[in-house]
């Protein structure tokens, strides 16, 4: 499906409306948690962003496998877009978690298994972007990124199971009593899935446009012929 500027405008309006509605539901509709008070409301945002970050990492993995099988630049564009979104979402997860920890644990950071594996995950995808930027040859960059993208995914299940299998101060799960709490969490899940999907799809398009516009001499031809651009390394 192709979306023009107008289509993307409508999409971002819907996503922003969903995000705003979720924020209102979390801030005013959901009651304050009896044990934690207002800082528990960070969880409505933190948890969906964390799941979205893992999905973005899974998208990098899928794109890496797709490139290794098809050797098509389309997959590399997807890998680059998903890796940037993974870094962004991991950054938001770490920052919101640190703010919550400062209030709940009276410290910004502690080396618990979940937090450590999350920081490693962020570092892995930052390094992926740095490595991509440092390789000039397009063919080599795509191959190295794909192999690295597959290897980096190993940390994703570790993040997920760490607080369940190892002694960890990070909560493994949180129970939500009131229906308004579940509504706020569900609204943020919807908003974050829309936002994550939109950022990856639009990001892939921008990566493709940047690649084809940046090819000296053949740029215009590639921009006019997407199939040519996909096949040209």
């Amino acid at each position: 499906m192709r979306m023009g500027r107008c289509g993307w405008g409508i999409f971002w309006t819907v996503a922003a409306g969903c995000y705003a509605a979720a924020t209102v539901a979390a801030a005013w509709h959901a009651p304050a948690d009896a044990a934690q008070g207002p800082i528990q409301k960070i969880f409505y945002l933190h948890f969906p962003v964390a799941i979205s970050a893992l999905l973005a990492c899974a998208a990098v993995f899928a794109a890496a496998v797709g490139y290794l099988i098809a050797r098509d630049a389309w997959w590399d564009d997807l890998l680059a877009a998903a890796a940037k979104v993974a870094v962004l979402l991991c950054s938001v997860v770490l920052l919101t978690g640190m703010i919550w920890a400062r209030s709940a644990w009276n410290t910004w950071w502690t080396w618990s298994p979940r937090l450590t594996f999350s920081l490693v995950l962020w570092l892995l995808y930052v390094v992926l972007l740095v490595v991509r930027a440092s390789i000039d040859s397009a063919q080599r960059r795509r191959l190295v990124s794909a192999v690295y993208g597959v290897a980096a995914f190993i940390d994703v299940p570790l993040v997920y199971v760490s607080s369940r299998l190892l002694p960890d101060i990070h909560p493994a799960s949180i129970s939500l009593g009131a229906p308004a709490m579940k509504l706020a969490l569900g609204a943020f899940f919807a908003a974050m899935l829309l936002l994550t999907g939109g950022l990856i799809i639009l990001g892939r398009k921008v990566e493709y446009l940047r690649r084809t516009a940046g090819s000296a001499g053949t740029g215009d031809a590639q921009a006019l012929n997407p199939e040519l651009a996909r096949r040209t390394s």
Partner: peptide, 22 residues
């Protein structure tokens, strides 16, 4: 800073980063 202050800070940081990138 109060609990509400930390919650507002977390939402502000997340919103600026996510929508700034979008």
């Amino acid at each position: 800073m109060s609990g509400t202050g930390y919650a507002i800070l977390a939402y502000a940081v997340a919103t600026v980063l996510l929508w700034g990138y979008a």
